[in-house]
Write a protein that binds this DNA or RNA. Structure first.
Length: 266
DNA sequence: ATGGTGGACCATCCA
C-alpha cells in the first residue's frame, strides 16, 4: 500500500498539478493539507473519476485537510481531540487541521492526516497554540499506541527536526519551526514509540519537502524538511520504502511543498 | 529593518 502526503497550498489553484501527480504516482491513499476551502468547495468529482473516495475537513480560506483513498475510508473522525481551551483567544479549533480514517487492505491501517500550526511569530499566542497542539497530538498518539495496531501520523508538521533537515539552519534559529522547544516537543512525540519513516530509511542530507516561494529558495535549494510520516511499531514493521517526490517543485504553478510517501506491506 | 512570492479573496491574513 502506497500512502502519500502532500501540502497542496490551495486545491483551487492546484487541481491540475494534484491530478497529474495522482495519475503518475498512483498512491492508494493521499493525505492532503491546506486545501483552503470548505467541504462543499472541494472538487470531489475529478478525484472520484480517478477512483478515489474523498473525505474532507475544510474551512474557508485557510488550513483544511483531506483524505483520498482507493479503498473505503472507514470510521472517519474530523478534528483533533482536546480542543477545549487549547485554541488561541477566540480561535480554538475552528482551525481544520486533522482527520483520521481506517483503510483496510491486506491489513488495517489507521491513517491520521495533520496540518500542524506554523506557530510564528514566536513567542506569542500562535506559538503557544502550536506547542499545545503538539501535546494534543501526542495524547492522541498515546491512545492509539495502546491498541498495538498499525497506525501512522502524516502531514505537514511545521517542524524541522534537526539542523541537517535545513539547507541553512542558521536562518531558522528564532523561527517557530526550529526553536529548541518545538524540536523537543516533536522529539517527545516520536519517543513515545513512533518511527520517523524517512530517517528509518536513510541518513542522507539535503532531503527537503519545502522551499519558500520567496528569495528564489527553490533555485538555491534553500529547503527544509517539515513533512513527516510517524509510524506505530506495528506499522513500522510493514515499512518497505519512504521517498520524497522532489521533482514536483520544478513544475508550473507548484505548491511550496512536495509529496512524501511510504510503501507498506499492508 | 524591509520586502521579497503566492493563495484566498477584496482588505488584509497567512505562510
Amino acid at each position: 500500500m502506497k500512502i502519500a502526503s502532500f501540502n497542496i497550498n490551495g486545491i483551487k489553484a492546484r487541481l491540475p498539478v494534484v491530478l497529474d501527480w495522482l495519475k503518475e504516482a498512483e498512491p492508494d491513499v493521499a493525505i492532503l493539507q491546506e486545501i483552503k476551502t470548505v467541504d462543499e468547495g472541494f472538487p470531489r468529482e475529478p478525484f472520484e473519476d480517478l477512483g478515489y473516495n474523498v473525505e474532507t475537513h475544510g474551512q474557508k480560506s485557510f488550513n483544511g485537510v483531506a483524505l483520498l483513498s482507493r479503498l473505503p475510508l472507514e470510521d472517519v473522525v474530523r478534528g483533533l481531540p482536546g480542543a477545549e481551551g487549547a485554541g488561541r483567544e477566540g480561535v480554538d479549533d475552528e482551525e481544520a487541521r486533522y482527520i483520521e480514517a481506517t483503510v483496510v487492505g491486506e491489513k488495517a491501517v489507521r491513517i491520521c492526516g495533520l496540518y500542524l500550526p506554523n506557530g510564528n511569530p514566536a513567542p506569542g499566542e500562535k506559538y503557544d497554540y502550536k506547542l499545545k497542539w503538539i501535546e494534543r497530538l501526542s495524547a492522541r498518539a498515546e491512545e492509539l499506541l495502546r491498541l498495538e495496531e498499525p497506525f501512522l501520523m502524516a502531514g505537514d508538521y511545521n517542524v524541522i527536526p534537526q539542523a541537517e533537515d535545513a539547507a541553512r539552519p542558521q536562518d531558522w534559529v528564532t523561527d517557530a519551526l526550529f526553536l529548541p522547544e518545538t524540536r523537543a516537543a516533536f522529539r517527545r512525540l516520536v519517543h513515545l514509540g513512533l518511527t520517523e519513516a524517512l530517517r528509518a530509511r536513510t541518513r542522507a542530507h539535503e532531503l527537503y519537502t519545502f522551499w519558500d516561494f520567496q528569495r528564489g529558495a527553490w533555485q538555491r535549494n534553500d529547503g527544509i524538511r517539515i513533512d513527516h510520516f510517524l509510524l506505530s511499531p506495528q506499522c513500522a514493521d510493514l515499512l518497505e520504502d519512504c521517498q520524497i517526490d522532489k521533482d514536483l517543485r520544478a513544475r508550473d504553478k507548484p505548491s511550496d511543498h512536495v509529496p512524501i510517501w511510504v510503501k507498506l506491506a499492508a
